[in-house]
Write a protein that binds this DNA or RNA. Structure first.
Lengths: 107, 107
DNA sequence: GCCTACATGTAGACTGTCTATATGACGAAC
DNA sequence: GTTCGTCATATAGACAGTCTACATGTAGGC
């Protein structure tokens, strides 16, 4: 998949995988791959800064944990993040409806 | 609509509005607005360079015309552009299926 | 004469994602 | 005992597509 297409939708994806359970960055990347049937492989250099930004604006909260000697920063959705996810979902529906409407062969 | 979301899909939109009839740049912008019910207003500074790029890579061909004293550069889809449009359409379907699959609230 | 719509174009800014690199712990293989 | 693959996080800087702002000019209405 053209990586450019992702632009503007990554936040929604990240919030979405955190909807039901807190996860750390590495696990989020795996979850995205799994949930997309392998189509999405977002590099670490994209995900980690994005998560930090989402925390900075209050959609996520994080805490450190050590599991098997390895340090993890586990993120969870805040209430604000939950509302944002709702917003992202409707924005996505609008977006696809708009583009699909123009793209649809009209013959 | 978040303008960032458009990124990576503009080419498809441009090719799509030219599918059934040649149009000049200004008319393409109007067609995009009309076909999207007003949701898409792509600025001229985005469209004109994009059209020139699509011509450069062979998906469009253009010729100048003068209508009512005004000069227009009218673009039409080439065969290569038609194939590309097909490709863009299936890429779009794949893309939406992938993102929707991840975004969909899983109960 | 002035304003709006029509019509095209370019330079440079902006910004979200990617590439490349760095660090380090763990477990298995050899 | 060291090397390799996986786990895990992080940052700096490159990249590229879109947008902003500006420039130019015609036509028609008031």
């Amino acid at each position: 998949m053209n990586p450019d297409a992702l632009r503007g939708h990554l936040d929604a994806l990240l919030l979405s995988v955190l909807e039901h359970e807190p996860l750390h960055g590495y696990a989020i990347i795996e979850a995205l791959q799994e949930r997309s049937g392998g189509a999405l492989s977002v590099p670490t250099g994209t995900v980690y800064p994005a998560l930090r930004k989402l925390e900075r604006v209050g959609y996520l909260a994080s805490e450190w944990a050590t599991v098997g000697g390895r340090k993890r920063r586990t993120y969870r959705l805040t209430d604000s993040g939950r509302r944002q996810l709702d917003g992202e979902r409707s924005a996505w529906r609008e977006f696809t409806a708009t583009i699909s409407g123009v793209l649809r062969p009209s013959s």
